[in-house]
Computed example of a mutant assay.
Amino acid sequence: MNITIIAGARPNFMKIAPIISALEEKQQQGYNISYRLVHTGQHYDANMSQSFFEQLGIPQPHVNLEAGGGSQAEQTAGIMTRFEKELAANPAQLVLVVGDVTSTLACSIVAKKMHVKVAHVEAGIRSGDITMPEEINRMVTDAITDYFFTTSEIANANLRKEGKSEDQLFFVGNTMIDTLLKHRHRFTAPPVWEQAGLQPGHYLVMTLHRPANVDEEQNLALLINEIMQNNHGLPVIFPVHPRTAKQLERIAVAQPRLHLTPPMSYLEFNYLVEHAKAVITDSGGITEETTVMGVPCMTLRDSTERPETCTLGTNALLGTDPAALKPAMDKLFAGQWQKGGIPPMWDGHTAQRIAEHLVTLFALEAKTATVA
């Protein structure tokens, strides 16, 4: 079994790390499995890419396509043309993609046009918001995928509605949680912990990068001001995404309790999240991590592709209107935030289930091919 694994952006690295470990376990058990790790270079900032390989124990990629930068179309085209040459030079029986970033979409299209099967990890999640680039990536990828590894029964239901058959669907859980649970004991305080004199449960963490929140300067300023006016004087730690940094320069936000930092490594950022009073974000992946760690989370979006974090977890969907923040913050500081629980199969063993399914699938295919 020869598998090409795609990684390109920060969220991918947390998802592929346990999969690689599970495949290497299968190798040690005597299974004929090989993999080639392709880094598309979609994220090329060291804190958003290289540090993840080092901290999460991911082996160095066999190749880096260095396709970062440019517009969405330019980046997609760059990844596709470079991955086409890579896959032609190093054929695979399966291309495994994760998540919903540009690399996921681009490499899936290339694989299918070259008649290589595609497996999608974290398949079937839907926000219903077609204005999100990630939603388009999910829909197109799942339209051509062969095997769907899902995080919830909700995702399975979405795929059934889109005409996928039961033998294509595998509810395995969440590989991001595999990574979280494996490395939780290694979380480490970032420099801002000492610099800002932080104490557990006495600060907030904020991340913003969605166009609806950061592209309009006035709206971004209103969001930040609303948070700072209703945070009961607590420090707010804001690791700034490169997209958001450009806007912050224009609006010149200056608040004594607001601490802007560069993007953090995985172990540092999750140390902050684990010990925070709450997290305010527009990231889907962070809502999964806060749910497992039992940290209150406010999501500044009108929809979510991870509804289980709201129905079962600690996340609340507030929308993008800054006025929604005050009642949510009042509820938080009144001690009335939902306690939440952990969704089914978010138990740290998802990657092992994926590896088991891959072994079974390829054994069946080999048997079928022999009979034919």
Results as ranks from 00 to 15, higher is better:
Met1Ala: 10
Asn2Trp: 04
Ile6Gly: 00
Gly8Cys: 08
Pro11Trp: 02
Pro18Met: 09
Glu25Pro: 00
Glu25Ala: 10
Gln29Asp: 14
Gly30His: 14
Tyr31Phe: 15
Ile33Gly: 01
Arg36Val: 03
Asp45Val: 05
Asn47Phe: 06
Met48Asp: 08
Phe52Ala: 09
Phe52Val: 08
Gln55Thr: 05
Gln60Ser: 12
Gln60Trp: 11
Val63Trp: 03
Asn64Gly: 01
Ser71Asn: 11
Gln72Asn: 10
Gln72Asp: 07
Gln72Glu: 11
Gly78Trp: 03
Thr81Tyr: 01
Thr81Cys: 02
Glu84Met: 12
Lys85Ile: 07
Asn90Asp: 11
Leu94Gly: 02
Val98Asp: 00
Val98Gln: 08
Ala106Thr: 03
Ile109Gln: 04
Val118Ser: 07
Glu122His: 04
Glu122Tyr: 04
Glu122Gln: 13
Ala123Thr: 03
Pro133Arg: 09
Pro133Val: 07
Glu135Gln: 07
Ile136Ala: 04
Asn137Leu: 03
Asn137Ile: 01
Met139Val: 12
Val140Ala: 04
Thr141Tyr: 09
Asp142Glu: 06
Thr145Gly: 08
Phe148Ser: 02
Ser152Trp: 01
Asn156Thr: 05
Asn156Ala: 00
Asn156Asp: 13
Asn156Leu: 02
Leu159Glu: 14
Gly173Glu: 10
Gly173Ser: 14
Thr179Arg: 06
Lys182Ile: 03
Lys182Val: 09
Lys182Phe: 09
Pro190Tyr: 11
Pro191Gly: 01
Glu194Phe: 05
Gln195Ile: 10
Ala196Tyr: 10
Gly197Ser: 08
His202Gly: 07
Tyr203Glu: 07
Leu204Ala: 08
Met206Asp: 12
Ala212Val: 15
Asn213Met: 08
Val214Arg: 05
Asp215Trp: 13
Gln218Phe: 02
Asn219Met: 02
Leu222His: 14
Leu222Glu: 15
Ile224Trp: 09
Ile227Asp: 06
Gly233Thr: 11
Leu234Phe: 15
Val236Ile: 15
Pro239Ser: 14
Pro242Tyr: 09
Thr244Trp: 14
Glu249Trp: 01
Ala252Pro: 00
Val253Pro: 14
Pro256Gln: 02
Leu258Asp: 09
Thr261Val: 08
Pro262Glu: 14
Met264Glu: 12
Met264Leu: 15
Ser265Asn: 12
Glu268Ser: 12
Leu272Tyr: 04
Ala276Met: 04
Lys277Ser: 06
Ala278Asp: 14
Ala278Gln: 05
Ile280Trp: 12
Ile280Gly: 11
Gly285Glu: 10
Glu289Leu: 08
Val292Glu: 01
Met293Asp: 15
Cys297Phe: 00
Leu300Thr: 05
Arg301Trp: 11
Ser303Cys: 03
Thr309Lys: 05
Leu312Phe: 04
Asn315His: 06
Leu318Trp: 04
Thr320Ser: 13
Lys326Tyr: 04
Pro327Val: 04
Leu332Arg: 01
Ala334Gly: 10
Gly335Lys: 02
Gly340Glu: 13
Pro344Gly: 01
Met345Glu: 12
Arg353Asn: 08
Glu356Trp: 00
His357Met: 03
Leu358Cys: 01
Ala363Met: 06
Ala366Gly: 04
Ala369Thr: 05
Ala369Asn: 02
Thr370Asn: 03
Thr370Ile: 11
Val371Pro: 00
Val371Ser: 11
